[in-house]
Design a protein around this nucleic acid. Structure first.
Lengths: 193, 193
DNA sequence: TTGACAAGTCAACACTGTTTACTTATACCT
DNA sequence: AGGTATAAGTAAACAGTGTTGACTTGTCAA
């Protein structure tokens, strides 16, 4: 009998470290983006993955390690920082209107659900720099590149947060094209030398 | 013997609903602004106040009721929305640089520590509208007042969040006056009709 | 076949917010 | 003054959390 068969051991599965790790990660991503970090318990992730709770800590150190890995996969924003410089503000504005104000990327959703969580601070800290501010600053260049990039990041995150707080009704009801135009102007102002 | 004396009952205090409520509230404000909502347990608030845990739920319904009451006291932003219209963007910019990027108001600190907390959503939701977007929209008037006010709110909250995530180093190292100028321009852009 | 080692399990730990049933002090009324 | 209703305060339990250490069991190599 082939030990890699799906048809398994007494408990229904072959012992495969990597496969189990991936199962947990998949369940975590699913649940985190659906309900947010704090709302999802380790036990429910384990149950969804059909796995023992203790394995989360074995493979990811702690629950936060799961989120760290989940958000590390997302690469929506870095893709934005490519193409011609002139239309960057518009691309960012469109990203805000169609992504941030829409469903949002998995990273965004997890991030906005879970921002402010104490033991996630370092996770977000790293990600904010490496995925948003850093690439953007490098891309725009010029004096105070980092300052200007940080302002754009603040705007992005702020819109996301306001939306999550249910305060973005006005933005979502507004005419999308007009909003893109307005945001383009704001981002231009942020990036101005 | 005067029953309102500080010198008390067997457990060291007179029974006084309002005074006890205030004690709890004071301890909560202190601890929330120092360490953040999630980090502070009901029991630690009760201990700090020298009071039984169950009284928190008795007087405030639940832990979230405590934060709701704490942040309801803060009125830093509404004060901003007074005075001549022309200099509003500059006042907001200065608020961001000197308050948000500095120590922050108690509300801000609590808010930024605790944003994203699920059962606080409704609390922040209400506060965002009644203390920031609402007053600002009324003040600026004109078409899309609410949309424009929401963008400013997003910027404010975004800067606060980025700072909390440790991503605002660039902003805090930047020349304060120059930053105020830049932010004034951005806020003007947000408010533009 | 027998070990060794990894993968997986189980039960416990200390902690959380919240609720219930309880005791006790206060203030009012006869 | 004495008795009593009512509110203030208490204690203990509940169900849930993340995390840990000692345990069992499957798998693969010698």
């Amino acid at each position: 009998m082939n030990p890699t068969d799906a048809a398994d051991t007494c408990h229904g599965r072959v012992r495969d470290r990597e496969a189990t790790r991936q199962r947990i990660l998949d369940s975590a991503r699913e649940l985190f983006t659906q309900e947010g970090y704090a709302q999802v318990s380790s036990r429910s992730i384990a149950a969804e993955a059909g796995v023992n709770v203790a394995l989360i800590n074995r493979y990811f150190g702690a629950k936060r390690g799961l989120l760290a890995e989940v958000i590390a996969e997302d690469a929506a924003f870095p893709q934005l920082v490519q193409g011609e410089r002139q239309t960057l503000p518009r691309r960012i504005a469109e990203h805000v209107v169609h992504r941030t104000l829409g469903e949002g990327t998995p990273l965004q959703r997890a991030l906005l659900h879970s921002l402010g969580d104490p033991d996630l601070k370092s996770v977000f800290e790293e990600r904010l720099q490496s995925a948003i501010i850093g690439p953007l600053a490098d891309y725009i260049g010029g004096p105070d590149a980092r300052t200007r990039a940080t302002l754009v990041a603040a705007l992005l995150i702020g819109v996301g947060n306001v939306r999550r707080m249910g305060g973005a009704d006005a933005l979502m009801e507004a005419d999308a094209d007009a909003l893109v135009q307005r945001l383009t102007g704001i981002v231009e102002r942020c990036l101005e030398e």
